[in-house]
């Protein structure tokens, strides 16, 4: 990936997001009476911030055209995409079957995914660590964690 493409993609994204947020900031629901907001609407500061980031993104965009020849290292998108999907699945599963029952398979999958595939240590760590965290939070710190539909605290 070239540095110019990197900067161009970033600045265009920021301009698009900025334009969308600006449009949101000028919606009638944010218009309050002067008696209520003392002459400064609730989106007074956000509009200044968005305006500034759009202007700076434009400068960055213009500057990026001179940087197309410089190369920067890329990323393994497929690997990352799969890992992010795994994390989302873990959090989703946590709401359904609780922290402990979702963390054990997640820890196994995550370690395996990142290249640590020695079965016994993986199984031991993936069981012991979530168990210790769960016990520490629920019984020592008294902070409830998501629990399964089958048990009251697990």
């Amino acid at each position: 990936m070239s540095k110019g493409f990197q900067d161009c993609a970033f600045s265009v994204s920021m301009i698009v997001i900025g334009a969308w947020l600006w449009w949101e900031a000028i919606q009638p629901r944010y218009q309050t009476s002067a008696a209520q907001d003392y002459g400064f609407s609730p989106t007074f500061l956000p509009r200044i911030l968005i305006g500034m980031w759009i202007v700076i993104s434009l400068i960055l965009l213009i500057r990026s055209f001179g940087l197309w020849s410089r190369r920067v290292s890329g990323s393994e998108w497929k690997t990352l995409g799969l890992f992010v999907a795994l994390v989302f699945a873990y959090v989703g599963l946590m709401t359904q079957i609780g922290f402990l029952f979702s963390s054990i398979p997640f820890a196994i999958c995550a370690m395996w995914f990142m290249g640590f595939r020695r079965a016994l240590p993986v199984a031991l760590i993936a069981t012991a660590f979530p168990l210790a965290v769960w016990y520490g939070f629920v019984f020592i710190l008294k902070i409830p964690l998501p629990y399964s539909p089958w048990f009251s605290q697990i």
């Binding site: 873990y90 959090v91 995550a110 290249g115 979530p130």
Partner: peptide
Amino acid sequence: PEPILLALVMILSVVGSYG
């Protein structure tokens, strides 16, 4: 090892955000 550390950091971070 890094894979174990990263997996444990993820679990701890999830709990931290939830807590």
